[in-house]
Design a protein around this nucleic acid. Sequence first.
DNA 1: TCTTGACCCTCCACCTGCTGGAACCTGCAT
DNA 2: ATGCAGGTTCCAGCAGGTGGAGGGTCAAGA
Lengths: 129, 129
Amino acid sequence: MNISEVAKRAGLPVKTVRYYEEIGLVRANRAANGYRSYGPRDLHRLAFVGRARSLGFSVLDCRTLLQLYDDPARASADVKAVAQTHLDEIDAKIEALRAMRDTLSTLVSACAGDQRPDCPILRGIAVSG
Amino acid sequence: MNISEVAKRAGLPVKTVRYYEEIGLVRANRAANGYRSYGPRDLHRLAFVGRARSLGFSVLDCRTLLQLYDDPARASADVKAVAQTHLDEIDAKIEALRAMRDTLSTLVSACAGDQRPDCPILRGIAVSG
DNA sequence: TCTTGACCCTCCACCTGCTGGAACCTGCAT
DNA sequence: ATGCAGGTTCCAGCAGGTGGAGGGTCAAGA
């Protein structure tokens, strides 16, 4: 399989597949002409990474998860620890965004949004966060 | 006021204050010795930016907001438009994170987290996203 | 007066996770 | 032979800073 084929099947841009090779995340064999050559296992790993990324895991986490995936003697506790940490980070981000949202939506609601210069949003930002 | 003083009062790292000058967001006068010199207005603007950033506005948005803030003839509608767009983006991000969170927490709950290799999290990532 | 330490300066590199483009090579159909 | 769709490498850039090197400056104490 050439790169565009594997990229399409894995649901990733070609550039991203090259990038993952560059950072040593998913390597590929080379054909005689220098083209990257992908087998089913490579496709599988690329799709795995793509899905882990879509769950918000960092590339570093993906590396760890791939290693655990490859290791038949892994402990599920190790996987769970990575996932739980990530889950906690997601929760923290949601909370931060929700706090922003609350403040901002209050300000937006208070703003007339007309041609006059008076603006509670600007006052809100200027005065205190 | 020197940079460390204004940074402290604005609640920003010194490096960030320099960065904001570099990108033309909040400029400073220079003293004879080359040191940046900040007045109350600069402090005010830096704090304004800091608060806008903490509400998640991009630096580009901050530029726009600062201009509107400076313009006594602004229309509050213009401010509101910027804020509303940003609010929509925040909502989209929250939604995306919530979707991640749901998937991930299901997987995490299903994982025993013990010494055995069987892991629903890895299976979940491997099979479908 | 000299020195020490806390400031300040600029510039350059690095972080994450790609993405775009230039310049070039390869494979296949016409 | 030629054209075009693939492939390759390398370099630059995005946001929004952060860290460090290598130096200048200022005020206080010995």
